[in-house]
Every structure is written in C-alpha cells, then in structure tokens.
Design a protein around this nucleic acid. Sequence first.
DNA 1: CTGCATCCTCATGGATACTG
DNA 2: CAGTATCCATGAGGATGCAG
Lengths: 141, 141
Amino acid sequence: MATVTRPAQEGTFLSDRDTGVTLEVHDAPQCMAVNDILARVGDKWSVRVVLALTDGSQRFNQLRRDIPGVSQRMLTRTLRGLERDGLVSRTVTPSVPPRVDYALTALGRSLCDPVARLGNWAIENIGKVEAARAVFDGEQD
Amino acid sequence: MATVTRPAQEGTFLSDRDTGVTLEVHDAPQCMAVNDILARVGDKWSVRVVLALTDGSQRFNQLRRDIPGVSQRMLTRTLRGLERDGLVSRTVTPSVPPRVDYALTALGRSLCDPVARLGNWAIENIGKVEAARAVFDGEQD
DNA sequence: CTGCATCCTCATGGATACTG
DNA sequence: CAGTATCCATGAGGATGCAG
C-alpha cells in the first residue's frame, strides 16, 4: 500500500481559489494523516475495490471477476488493508465451501464522496493532462 | 510516481449515497484516467509540492525548505512529473546564479479543489481509521 | 472457495557526489 | 542555485503452488 515512511513535516495550507474549498494543515500529525489517506487512495487497487463494493456486498471471487487484472494475492492484501482501516467489513460464513462477504462500512461509503469528486476531475481533465504530456515529451530535443 | 502499468479494465460505477455525488466509468480509457490521476495524487510528494505552491510562485530551494524530508532528487522528479502533466509551470531565468520559478497552472489550481476535499476527509476521519487499525492489530491473537 | 507461502522482478525513493 | 549521475535498500506487485 505505498510507502508508509512519512517524515515529520511543518504546517502548510491549501486553498482553492475557484471554489473556496480550503485545506488547512497546521501540524505534523495532520500532514501525516493526509499523506496516509492519499497513499491508500493512490494505490493500485483500493479504489477499484471500493468501486466494486458500492453496488453492495460481494464475495471474494466475484470481486476478482469484477476487477480485471487483479491477482489473488493483491486482492487479498488490498481487502486486508481496507478492512484494517475500517473501510470494508469482512463476514465469514463457516460453510463448505467457505463463503466470505465483503462490504463497505459507513466510513468506507463516506470516503466515496471525495474520491468520486477526484475521479470526476480526472475524467474531465485527462484530455488536458495528456495534451500537456504530448507537448512535454515532444519538446525533448 | 507509482506504477504506470494499468491493465485494461471493464466499466464500473461509483455513487455516493449520502451526497449524490456520482462517478461513472463506462470504458477502459476512463478507468485508466482515474487510476492515472489517483496514482499521481497518491505519490509521496506531489500533493506536498502543490500545497507549497498554492501560496504563489516558489524557487527550487525555497520549495525544498518548505517541504521537510524531500530529497533534491525526488523534488526534481516530482516537479518534472507535475510539469509534464501540465499542473505546474517552470520558468527559467538565465542569470548567475540561475533562477528557476515554479508555479501552479490553471489546471493545477483546479486540482486543488478535489484534493482539498479528500484532504479534509482525511483530517476528519483519521481518528476513526487509526482506531480501526488499533482494533484490527489488537485482534491478531 | 478463500486464502497463505514462496519466489521473482522492477519501480520507488533515499544518500551521496559531481556539474554548469 | 539548480540540477544530473550513481549506487543502493526497500517494498509493490505478479506467478505459482499448496492448504483448510
């Protein structure tokens, strides 16, 4: 889940001039918190799993089919990470064969809002980003 | 800047039940776009750099002082990545000694809004996350 | 079905030294 | 001042095999 080695950091401040949304970070613990969540959201599979769970509870192999490209190992690890952070619940039904259901917790659902906004920004602006990349890469003479 | 090996992916859908904010991803390119931006935002230094630039244009070593823990190498690489994506502008003044100013572009400033929302979620909920971690880690008998 | 253990590769990122 | 070059440790993440 990305590096967890977060250095001690000074206070800083983020304000968005267009919407007035403001992010205030005055001490190291908050800086680390933000970095921490950002690292989780930025890892390769967490958001995909959360997306797949917004439709409701899912079993392990159903998730695996819903998320093309994920390996069994990484799906397990990602689910454990999300469970550890209280974003996903894990319910084991001791039957034969065993059945395990994963679902978003209230905390996990509350994370969907800011993540969706970031996702929408990505969809709206990916064109500009890719255009900028093309220009930048073309300038390498 | 995190792994760029993004697999082809099926359509998916994210909707937040509390606020009605909705993220729709219907095809592979959009999935990749979201993962792409998430990876950038989730890397270790990008957001810190963007934060440091919201106050206005900054020179290289000023940024370095403002972001405790960042190495010269990673600051350079992060700035190059942000510049390549069109989020940060780089202005060279060919003097002796050389002077280079970095600033957010309009695109970079527009990213501040969703990032600030995610950052605020992190600050508001880090307590719950850490509590969940303590429970989870304590349950390991 | 749901996972854990193992091995392997490669990207991230830190430390250090050097340059225009 | 603002980088680049090099070396190195760590960990993310894939493939495969085994187990309850």
